[in-house]
């Protein structure tokens, strides 16, 4: 009983997957699991983990919640931040504020479309993807001009304390903060409630639409923040830099055991999911699999997980 429930617990599964991937990587390419390599992997996982935080919230809130527009919002965040910073350390804070404020508002528009106009989230955020992508081309004239400030690049790429870069501490703070929000605040309880049964949530007095709007806004905020991290990681940006995060942010959430139906799951699982996914990507790179090969594996991973968890859900009734 305990063994079985342990094995079907997504957190345990994700942890096992992480260890197995590390072992496979080390076997294929000795040095794969070395300390500095792991820090490198965690940095990449942190960037994915931050956008997946928003995706996680939107999915938890239910009613087929999903945010496909995180890709272009990341790109937009990176471009805005790059333009404002223009290589100057003094402009880092305004750059972060501007990038996240704009993407937060875009997220709120997603939320209004989903709640007030009742557009299905898939369609609403897909439409928003096209709008933001197009707007980004107009805004940047196709060639983003800005670049990251040196201090931001150092914060993300260089060791800060204990040999770890600053972004890992930011991620840790987000993980603790979000888990606290979900488990110890009335807002978190409300998110699970509307995800579990929207009508029942309305009947216990929760402002269902307002909460759901806010979740989409937060998804935008985290996407914008991810955009800032992306430009800090690579130094400059291009207008489709965020596209790869759409599918992977959803997979990270699902690996972590959050139900796509809403109302069940949490962020710790998503953190493990992000790490496992980045490890998988890295192992596939070690195998010298081309990008399209990785895409196939990613897509299959998502579908296999849906199969496994779907079955588990039925058993759990």
């Amino acid at each position: 009983m305990t063994l079985r429930s342990g094995l079907t617990n997504p957190l345990t599964l994700a942890a096992i997957a992480i260890l197995a991937l590390l072992a496979v990587g080390e076997t294929l390419s000795p040095g794969f699991a070395r300390g500095d390599q792991i820090v490198r992997l965690l940095t990449v996982a942190a960037i994915l983990g931050i956008v997946a935080a928003g995706q996680n919230l939107v999915i938890l809130g239910g009613r087929e919640g999903i945010d496909l527009s995180v890709g272009p919002m990341i790109s937009l965040g990176a471009v805005i931040a790059g333009n404002i910073m223009a290589g100057a350390n003094a402009a880092i804070l305004p750059a972060i504020l501007a990038a996240t404020a704009v993407t937060f508002l875009i997220g709120i528009v997603n939320g209004l479309g989903v709640t007030l106009v009742r557009i299905p989230p898939l369609v609403m955020t897909l439409g928003m993807t096209a709008i933001v992508q197009g707007g980004l081309v107009v805004y940047s004239q196709g060639i983003p001009s800005g670049n990251a400030a040196p201090a931001l690049m150092a914060f993300i790429n260089r060791p800060l304390v204990l040999g770890l870069p600053g972004i890992l501490f930011v991620w840790a703070i987000i993980a603790v903060g979000l888990t606290f929000l979900l488990r110890r605040t009335a807002f978190g309880y409300a998110v699970y409630a509307i995800g579990a049964n929207e009508r029942a949530a309305m009947l216990v007095g929760l402002p269902v639409n307002r909460i759901r709007c806010l979740l989409y806004g937060l998804s935008g905020f985290f996407a914008g923040l991810t955009g800032v991290c992306v430009i800090g990681y690579t130094g400059n940006s291009f207008i489709s830099v965020g596209d790869q995060y759409v599918l992977s942010s959803i997979i990270a959430v699902v690996i972590g055991g959050t139900s796509l139906a809403g109302g069940a799951g949490g962020y710790i699982g998503t953190v493990l999911g992000a790490v496992a996914l980045v490890l998988l990507q890295s192992v596939l790179t070690t195998l010298q699999l081309e990008n399209y090969g990785r895409q196939i594996i990613f897509g299959m991973t998502l579908l296999v997980l849906m199969l496994l968890y779907g079955r588990q859900g039925r058993l759990r009734v």
């Binding site: 699970y192 409630a193 579990a196 049964n197 009947l203 109302g263």
Partner: peptide, 13 residues
């Protein structure tokens, strides 16, 4: 089922 149960959540919640 329709009006009250927060399905899948704990008795406490």
């Amino acid at each position: 089922g329709r009006d009250a149960a927060l399905t899948g959540r704990s008795i406490f919640e």
